[in-house]
Design a protein around this nucleic acid. Sequence first.
DNA 1: CGGTATCCATATCGATACTG
DNA 2: CAGTATCGATATGGATACCG
Lengths: 126, 126
Amino acid sequence: MDQEILKKYSNVDECPVRNVLDRIGNKWTLLVLLVLEEQQVLRFNELHTYISTISQKMLSVTLKSLEADGLVKRTIYPQVPPKVEYELTARAQSLLPLIHNLVDWSKTHINAIKTSRKHYELVTRK
Amino acid sequence: MDQEILKKYSNVDECPVRNVLDRIGNKWTLLVLLVLEEQQVLRFNELHTYISTISQKMLSVTLKSLEADGLVKRTIYPQVPPKVEYELTARAQSLLPLIHNLVDWSKTHINAIKTSRKHYELVTRK
DNA sequence: CGGTATCCATATCGATACTG
DNA sequence: CAGTATCGATATGGATACCG
């Protein structure tokens, strides 16, 4: 990893990982992916029911960015009242195993990490 | 994934993955981990040289949170001028393979994702 | 039903100056 | 050398009201 590559990777636009992490790193994306993985196809308000603590706005924003990245497919049924369905794409399916690895790692280490945080709080408190 | 679990996982404090992602999802953490993995042991200003675009403040903040989570070990040599060394812990070493998987996935899919984003821009522009 | 629009609170990030 | 303090800009997230 020489200076030039590091310089490039410090730039969000040019760094592949930052491009991806900036999306899955936000507050709701991961949860939406996991719910859609389990339920396969859901309408907007069904998703809202599963993830009741999200605001309508943030659910909309999250779904738009997932759709833009080609991770979620949005199907509109032209009827009244409108019906819109969301489901994962193959691209999202290929990402999900890595997410599950992260979930597993987190579950395994979260207790130790929280203990570390508390200890750090104590030793750094003046 | 029933309602109760979802409710819990919507809460950042109680969700293991969000706890971890909130850290590695921020702007500089991943880069610091990867540089420390490659260089093994570095002083504050050496890190700053490797990641030249980070501000002193953000490098300090990033290192503190990594130290708090037990992912980075900080060693102070009581001398003048001060000497402080940073290196990864075993906990961080166990996380790095998952990060490399994410890096690889991102590199593989970034072009298709960027193409999707451009296409999405076009079709949604009024 | 499936969203937008608007406004606001907070969190994150960065530039600059200063220090033991 | 290895930071901290302060201030300000920007990004993110949320509450509420409204709409085709």
